[in-house]
């Protein structure tokens, strides 16, 4: 039994990893061809942008150096071959190693998104608990807050928070500074809309959980309402939302584009925006692959956790 169990786990993992490789390859292919449909000559991106007045020689040199003069199929095979050995290539606009550039900015974005995810979680849990609690008025307020929070665009929220906490109150810096203070506003901006959303999700399962037999039996055993909530209901309600974390992480990368721009934080989101504008194909591909990889890994990890938590899934 343990042997076959281990083999089954290994097999599951192998299938998932193969799936992950497929996903990454598809994304690289998709981006490769999509960006070739975008108007604009990549050689110009290399020569200082589309307004460049580079000479014919300079253009020819660049086209040759980057292989842009070869047939598209050949360029594609070359690019995929390089990706296979983990070479993300050289950024067109920044003329630097893409892997190095990403490594430089990955941690800032990771820190921002992980903190935002955690904050959103806490806020959502608070809101959802509040929303399922007795008083009608309280419930109405909580659900109004959820809806408003989920319907606020990041860029507007960022400006309001800066106006309130930096300009008016002078409590927090409006731009990234070393240390935790500079992270507060970006994290809150990113977390609030997500919290509104997660709260709506959690409330559904929390309401279910409170009516479930185990909650009833806990009450029957004489546990306090708070105890029931904390020990059983919240834990139960959190499960489906935990499996959302992979998705939430992905959506936060999109949000990071806006938040990093407004708060002038270095990071992958801002790089992505610039890379698309510059038609910097290697950099766009690199960032897309890295965020896809993060997404895939998080998904595999949460699925694995699910398998551990729910033995029924192990057979499938």
């Amino acid at each position: 039994m343990p042997v076959s169990g281990a083999r089954r786990v290994l097999r599951w993992l192998a299938v998932r990893l193969a799936g992950a490789v497929f996903v990454l390859w598809s994304i690289a292919t998709l981006i490769f061809f999509a960006l070739r449909l975008v108007p604009g000559d990549p050689a110009l991106a290399i020569l200082g942008g589309p307004g460049s007045q580079a000479s014919e020689e300079a253009l020819a040199l660049v086209r040759q150096e980057y292989g842009l003069d070869r047939p598209v199929s050949e360029q594609y095979l070359l690019a995929m071959g390089r990706l296979l050995v983990g070479d993300l290539g050289t950024s067109y606009s920044l003329r630097q190693d893409v892997l190095g550039l990403i490594a430089e900015q990955f941690w800032g974005t990771l820190l921002l998104t992980v903190l935002a995810l955690a904050t959103a979680w806490l806020l959502a849990l608070g809101l959802a608990t509040w929303a399922t609690r007795g008083s009608r008025a309280g419930r109405a307020v909580a659900s109004a807050l959820e809806i408003v929070a989920a319907a606020v665009p990041h860029f507007w929220l960022a400006s309001v928070l800066i106006l309130l906490f930096s300009t008016t109150l002078g409590m927090l810096p409006p731009v990234s500074v070393p240390g935790p203070l500079g992270l507060v506003l970006p994290v809150v901006t990113l977390a609030l809309p997500l919290a509104g959303f997660l709260a709506q999700v959690m409330r559904e399962s929390l309401a279910d959980a409170l009516e479930s037999p185990f909650a009833l039996s806990a009450r029957a055993r004489g546990e306090s309402e708070t105890g029931v909530r904390l020990r059983h209901a919240v834990r139960h309600a959190a499960l489906p939302a935990i499996s959302l974390s992979g998705w939430a992480f992905g959506s936060l990368i999109s949000g990071a584009v806006v938040v990093e721009t407004v708060f002038a934080r270095p990071g992958l989101g801002r790089s992505l925006l610039k890379a698309v504008t510059d038609r910097d194909i290697p950099l766009v591909t690199g960032i897309a692959l890295v965020s896809a990889l993060a997404f895939v890994l998080v998904t595999i990890a949460t699925d694995a956790l699910d398998r551990v938590a729910d033995p029924r899934l192990r057979g499938s």
Binding site: L163, S166, G170, V175, T261, F263, A264
Partner: peptide, 19 residues
């Protein structure tokens, strides 16, 4: 030499003395 692309943020940073 800092890069702060957003004009409202840049002005807020000047007002708050960050820059």
């Amino acid at each position: 030499w800092r890069f702060i692309p957003d004009a409202t943020t840049r002005y807020a940073a000047l007002q708050s003395g960050e820059v």
